[in-house]
Amino acid sequence: MKIINYVSIVSMPILIFIILMNGVKERKNVFDIFLKGAVEGIEIVFKILPTLVGLFFAIGFLRNSGILDFIINIISPIINIFHVPKEIIPLALIRPISGSASLAIATDIMQQNGVDSFVGKLASVIMGSTETTIYTIAVYSSCVKIKNIRFVLFAALIADIVGMISAIIICNIIFV
């Protein structure tokens, strides 16, 4: 575990080191190239800002109107049959939609139930093994002005569901 900790700390600095060493070795004008790329980075953030504003705004409505809690209350008896802790449901529902909202929910779950409780660990595994699917699809398709996304949402959500079920199974094997 100490090794894994160490790897997570050094991976970024090492990667930066390797990139710069290669650039210098090949006698490139590294700072000029850096600036050129950095400008592109700014453009990309400004391109996705309208998407972010639109989505954050809609998700804020869903949460604050109480309709999200209402839906969770309807779904929870069904999910209880599969021995999924009730506390996980909001996380599972929000995870594909919003990264920051799901991070907030995961933090809340860990604070309420204990970070080292079963539910706390399960929330961690779900956060680590899934992505904000709908946001990712929206950003990528709107970037090139796509209107027909075919089956990508379906395939990505199936992958998310498989990921969450795997998380529940593996946590039950390791942490119970």
């Binding site: 930066i16 990139i19 710069l20 290669n22 650039g23 070795k25 090949e26 490139k28 590294v30 190239i33 850096f34 600036l35 050129k36 790329g37 950095a38 592109e40 980075g41 700014i42 990309i44 953030v45 996705i48 800002l49 972010l52 504003v53 989505l55 954050f56 705004f57 998700i59 804020g60 409505f61 920051s100």
Partner: peptide, 30 residues
């Protein structure tokens, strides 16, 4: 929500800027 979206973008701005620049160097090397 609107505030959060802007704050989130600003948080994203620095790292995106840095890594786009670094990756541009990587893309131009072996």
């Amino acid at each position: 929500s609107v505030d959060n979206a802007v704050k989130f973008s600003i948080n994203l701005l620095g790292m995106t800027c840095l890594w786009s620049g670094l990756m541009e160097i990587a893309v131009n090397t072996n």
